[in-house]
Simulated assay, not measured.
Amino acid sequence: MKKVFLSLVALATFGFANAQIKEKGTIEITPKIGASSFGEFNGNDNSDYNAGVELGATVDYYFNNRWSLRSGLIADKMGSKNQFAGNFYEDELNYLSIPLNANWHFGSTRKWNLNFGLSPSFLTSAKFNENANTTDIPESAIESFQLGFTYGIGYKIGINDKFGILIDAQFFNGLTNINKASQERIVNGGYSFNLGGVIQL
């Protein structure tokens, strides 16, 4: 019985020592890189997903040990790809997004997080690829701004008090129409899997 009790005490002490409890005002910066997959959706004829790389950094400001506000800058390749009659077509749409997400840190050591919110995105370049030929998509054909609903889940591996490694999955659902060329409503949607380094200031 004594050994069981001592084991429980040791386990509790280990868990407390590794707890990621944050005080109000704590700030964390997380540079990250990931693999993304996006498509264009109109409710009927949807595209194939378009693979890309996600780059950026997020900042978390903690209000208490469970909630933080997450924002930052994220660069994503969105758009779509299709194959028809032996030809390859791709809309390559590059965006810079500013997520505004509530981030809930849960679990006994707060290593898990669940975030959700809105993400304004600004178009930085738009190209149309047909087989080996690339042309610019005119500004008259595509909106330069979009708003999306973003959400995701992540797990942080604590290395020490000031640094950790974040593994997360993020999802984006477009809320606004990006199509200016016709009356057809088209939105971006997709997801990414990311790896980042969490730096506490």
Results as ranks from 00 to 15, higher is better:
L147Q: 06
G72S: 05
N113I: 03
E139R: 10
G174N: 10
F38S: 00
A35I: 09
E139Y: 11
N131S: 07
T135R: 07
T176M: 13
L69P: 00
E23M: 10
N87P: 07
I98R: 00
F5R: 10
N177R: 12
N194G: 10
I165P: 06
D76I: 02
R185T: 15
I33Q: 05
S108C: 08
F149L: 14
S144W: 10
A12C: 12
S97T: 06
Y61H: 03
Y95F: 13
N101V: 03
T135D: 13
I178Y: 06
N179S: 14
R110T: 05
D91K: 03
V59S: 03
Q20E: 12
N50I: 01
A126L: 04
I142F: 07
E139C: 06
S71M: 03
K77W: 06
Q200G: 13
E40C: 05
D45V: 09
F149Q: 02
E92I: 04
I186P: 03
L147F: 12
S80E: 05
R66A: 05
T30Q: 04
K156N: 12
Q20S: 06
K22V: 06
R185D: 15
S37N: 09
G15P: 03
Y191A: 14
N133V: 11
E92K: 07
A17P: 04
S192E: 08
N133M: 10
G117M: 02
D168M: 09
G197T: 14
Y191Q: 10
E23F: 06
A132Q: 10
L8R: 12
F193M: 10
S71C: 05
G39F: 04
I142R: 02
I27K: 09
F172L: 14
L123R: 02
A75D: 04
W67A: 01
G148P: 02
S108N: 12
A169F: 14
W104A: 03
R110G: 03
L147M: 14
T26H: 06
K156I: 13
N94C: 04
S182F: 15
S71L: 03
G158Q: 12
A10T: 11
N94T: 09
T58W: 00
H105C: 04
L201N: 15
S192G: 08
I159Y: 14
Y61A: 03
A132K: 12
N87G: 07
S7F: 12
L147W: 11
N87V: 08
F5Y: 11
